Structures are given as structure tokens and as C-alpha cells.
Amino acid sequence: MRIKTTRQQHILRIKTTLRWLLYYLLIFLSFIIMTSGTLYKPILLVPLAIAISINNNIYGSAVTGAFCGFLIDICCGKLFGYNAVILAFFCILTNLVFELYLKNRFINYLMITAVVSYIQCWLDYKFYYQIWDYENVGRIFVRVSLRVWAYTVISAFFMYLLVKLVNKLLMPKEHLTIEEAINTNIQNENKR
């Protein structure tokens, strides 16, 4: 690891700002795609929020998850804040799981996205259709909810590639500050 210079810290701030601007540009483009078209379209903001939460800190994951959830609520006409709470919780959980246990691999991302998308579709079905005991309510889950879930999981491939490209170009590399370098040297000398 190298020590950060003032120039590198300035470049790090610029790259971090550009990375978050690109993340939120992708979020708004996904929101625009979600608001156009027919009933059978993927909920693009779920895999995008999960992909963003994998490589970032817990606060950025929570804010991104809540923001994407609010946009889903607006797009789908749900109770304002319903999806925000769900997606913020799952983004925090995803961040912690990837930080502590899982490696940043596509298959891990796809499994978590599939589970989170299924839970979200199932909760929507339970709270917006089954609770009111509509006639033939099971057909809504099979014909609409599962189809939207499948489209969302398929769209996860593209969201992962887009976020991985942004991270490859703009993710900061590991560097030590001067204090960390001095403390590391002192610790190494004490061990000898």
C-alpha cells in the first residue's frame, strides 16, 4: 500500500463525486424506464440498489436503498415510504453480508437480488391484493408478480455490469494515510 499524497486525496474526492453522480444518473434512467411502458416491466431499481450497496459503505447503501425505494413507491403508486423501508433494510443487510462473509462475485449478487426481489414482490402481493381477499387473487401472483420478479432478476445482469464498469473506472484504490503508515511501522518494529 502507498501513502496518500495531497494530489491523490484530491483525485480521490473527484473520482468519488463522479462515481456517485453516475450512480444517481443510472438510478434516474432506471426510474424513467420503469415509468414508461406496460404493466409487465422489471423493477430496475431493486437490482441497481443492491449492486450499489455491495461496494460502498453502510450509510451510502442505506441512503441509496431508501431513495430507490421512494422512487419505486412513486412509480408503482404504493404507500409512500413502504418500499423505501424494505429496500433500505435489504441494502444495509447486503452491504454487511458482502463486507463480512461473501466475496464480490456475480453469482452471490444474483442470488441476493433474486431473494430480495422475490420478498418485495411477495410482500406487495400480500399487502395489496391478498389482504383484501379479491376473487381469483392467486392468479395475480402467478401471472403478474412472478413475471415481474423474473424480469427483475434478468435485468440484474445488466445492472451488475453497469455498476461494475462505473466501479472499475472510478473506485478508489487502497492507500494508507501518513498516520496509518507510521502506526504500521511502529507495530512492525514492536513485533520484532
Rank of each mutant, 00 (worst) to 15 (best):
I50F: 05
I14D: 05
K173E: 10
S36L: 07
I52R: 02
T177F: 01
T38I: 06
C76M: 08
S36K: 08
T64G: 00
L26G: 05
W20K: 08
K103G: 07
G37N: 03
F98T: 12
T177P: 01
A66K: 01
I178M: 05
S155Q: 06
Y109P: 13
L25I: 14
C91R: 06
F67L: 15
V166L: 10
V166D: 04
L162F: 13
R143G: 09
L21R: 08
W20H: 06
Y59W: 14
T6D: 10
L176H: 10
I140F: 15
F70I: 15
Y109V: 15
L79M: 10
I50N: 01
F127E: 12
L96N: 01
G81Q: 04
P172N: 04
G69M: 06
H10Y: 15
I54M: 06
I33K: 00
H10Q: 14
G69N: 05
I27H: 07
V166H: 01
G37Y: 06
N95Y: 04
T16V: 09
T6E: 12
Q130D: 05
L102M: 10
K173C: 06
Y59A: 14
V115I: 14
F106Y: 12
Q8F: 03
T113L: 05
T38R: 01
F98Q: 09
L100K: 08
N55K: 14
F67D: 10
G81T: 14
I182H: 09
T94I: 00
T6I: 15
E135Q: 12
V144S: 01
A181F: 10
N183M: 14
V148I: 15
E179S: 03
R7S: 02
G37M: 09
V153P: 11
I131Q: 04
E174W: 03
K78H: 05
N56I: 02
L96P: 11
F157E: 12
Y125R: 00
M34C: 07
S36G: 00
I27F: 00
W122A: 11
V148T: 08
L21K: 08
R147K: 02
H175L: 15
A62R: 04
R7F: 07
V116H: 01
I54F: 00
S53K: 02
V166W: 09
V148Q: 03
R13A: 03
R192D: 13
R192M: 14
I131P: 08
L25E: 02
F157W: 13
L102V: 09
F158K: 05
N183A: 02
R19G: 01
L71C: 05
L45G: 01
G77T: 07
D133M: 13
W149E: 07
M34A: 03
A84F: 10
A66M: 09
Y125H: 02
L110W: 13
